[in-house]
Simulated assay, not measured.
Amino acid sequence: MMIAVIDYNMGNICSLGNALGRLGAEWVLTADHDVIRNADRVILPGVGNAAEAMANLQRLQLPELIWKLRRPVLGICVGMQVMCRHSEEGDAECMGIFDAKVKRFPAVPGIKVPHMGWSRISNLESKLFKGIEKGSYVYFVHSYYAPLCPDTIATSRHPEMYSAALKYENFYGTQFHPEKSGDVGERIIRNFLEI
Rank of each mutant, 00 (worst) to 15 (best):
R41L: 04
I121Q: 09
V184C: 04
A165G: 12
W67F: 06
D183R: 11
A4I: 04
S15G: 05
V102C: 13
R22Q: 01
N56R: 02
I97T: 08
G173P: 01
Q61A: 04
A50M: 09
T174H: 00
E194K: 09
H86E: 15
F171G: 14
F176Y: 12
L60R: 14
C84S: 15
F171N: 13
Q58G: 12
T155G: 04
A53Q: 07
L29T: 07
L124P: 04
V108E: 15
L62K: 04
E125L: 07
F105P: 10
A92P: 05
R41S: 06
T30F: 10
S143V: 06
V5C: 07
Q81H: 12
E26V: 08
F140I: 05
A154N: 10
G48Q: 11
I188Q: 02
V73G: 01
G117D: 12
P63A: 13
M1R: 06
M116V: 11
V138T: 11
Q175I: 10
S122A: 13
L20V: 01
V28R: 14
S87E: 12
V113T: 12
H177C: 01
G17K: 13
G182A: 09
S136Q: 13
I6Q: 03
H115G: 02
Y8C: 00
P147H: 15
K68N: 11
M2N: 08
G90H: 11
G182R: 14
E179P: 00
T174S: 00
I3F: 11
V73Y: 04
F105K: 14
F192I: 04
C14E: 08
A164F: 07
V82K: 09
D99L: 05
N49C: 02
A100C: 05
K134G: 14
V78D: 07
V113L: 08
A39F: 03
K112M: 06
G96Y: 01
L23N: 01
A25S: 02
S136R: 12
A25M: 01
S156D: 12
C94I: 03
L65D: 09
H33C: 03
Q61F: 00
I36V: 00
V5Q: 09
L128C: 07
A154V: 06
H142S: 00
